[in-house]
């Protein structure tokens, strides 16, 4: 969407992200961080059950993070907000689901105590939340996500890779490496949604960062053979410092260390399925059912980028 003078700015400095309404309401940063992971994971699980498109799921999660920049988790229980965000995102992204169906799925995913958040009339509660949500996000409904930029950049890199293959006789293995990178980066985008990154950086920047991270992890660095000797991302975005990329990577990775000891969250209750990948990616580029996230969750896998 075009920038408009009366649209709010949804990007915050790190200091502002610490002084959230919840923090001011006596909720610790750690607890809020956990809530900001649990809500999005719950949205992922519901969305996957309902067969929703990844953009719908991501839009719901962005709404969720924005909402809690103005309200506290004490006043607005996270599972109701999460359900409401997915309900609204469904309509906004032209993939509407009925409110009662969303509630049905929520009930099946939550335990009794968690579902008690919805009160006596769950549907009415979600509809009431919707009005608060719409006004809180100032009806700013058009949200972009890193997925499409990541795919766009990967496509461009693939083109270069083909070109260099003929120039320098590189193996066709380079091509499949890009596909592996796309797979991994896709998963990192999903994971980034469980952090406050969407409140800090534009989707283009997050896309470059997760590709950079994935490149490091699969020991594949497009800049090795970029013909103009620059960093590969410079053709997409100007002026991203290494410090910034590393900071974003750390934020994506940090949640895995925080994960430990947090068993019994919502997501453990359901069999995790992958959100759908778009049709314009090669089949081989689709994240496999058991790709990086579940592996990374293993305490034995020490994932840390060595710089």
């Amino acid at each position: 969407m075009k920038p408009s003078q009366n649209m709010p700015c949804w990007y915050y400095e790190k200091a502002d992200l610490k002084k959230t309404p919840s923090f001011c309401d006596g909720i610790s940063s750690e607890t809020e961080g956990r809530y900001r992971r649990e809500g999005p994971r719950f949205i992922f699980d519901m969305g996957t059950r309902l067969g929703l498109h990844h953009d719908t799921i991501a839009t719901a999660i962005v709404f969720f993070h924005r909402f809690y920049m103005f309200h506290t988790f004490k006043k607005f229980p996270r599972y109701v907000t999460a359900t409401c965000c997915l309900f609204l995102a469904g309509k906004v992204e032209e993939t509407p689901k009925k409110c009662k169906d969303l509630i049905k799925v929520a009930r099946s995913l939550l335990n009794e105590g968690q579902f008690a958040q919805f009160g006596d009339d769950p549907k009415e509660e979600v509809l009431t939340f919707e009005k608060v949500l719409l006004q809180t996000i100032k009806f700013d409904l058009t949200v972009e996500h890193p997925y499409k930029y990541m795919l766009q950049y990967a496509k461009a890199l693939k083109g270069i890779s083909f070109y260099t293959q003929f120039q320098y006789n590189l193996s066709f293995g380079e091509r499949s490496k890009i596909e592996k990178l796309v797979q991994m980066a896709w998963t990192f985008i999903n994971d980034s949604l469980c952090t406050s990154l969407c409140l800090q950086w534009e989707p283009q920047i997050v896309a470059v960062a997760v590709m950079y991270l994935a490149g490091r992890l699969c020991k594949f660095e497009p800049q090795d053979w970029a013909y103009n000797r620059g960093r590969w991302w410079e053709q997409f975005i100007d002026d991203i410092s290494m410090d910034l990329l590393e900071d974003i990577c750390h934020q994506v990775l940090d949640q895995y260390s925080q994960q430990k000891g947090n068993k019994g969250t919502v997501s453990s209750k359901v069999k995790r399925e992958r959100p759908k990948t778009p049709g314009d990616v090669d089949k081989s580029a689709e994240p496999q059912a058991k790709s990086s996230r579940s592996e990374i969750h293993k305490p034995t896998t020490k994932v840390r980028v060595v710089y």
Binding site: F87, V92, E130, K138
Partner: peptide
């Protein structure tokens, strides 16, 4: 029955996108 009407959401989304001398200007909600 389904909360804020999807038709109104569509209209708002489109009006926020369109800023032109010859398109009606949505000031606020």
């Amino acid at each position: 029955k389904e909360g804020f009407p999807i038709t109104a959401l569509r209209e708002i989304k489109i009006l926020q996108l369109l800023k032109h001398e010859n398109v009606v200007d949505l000031i606020e909600i």
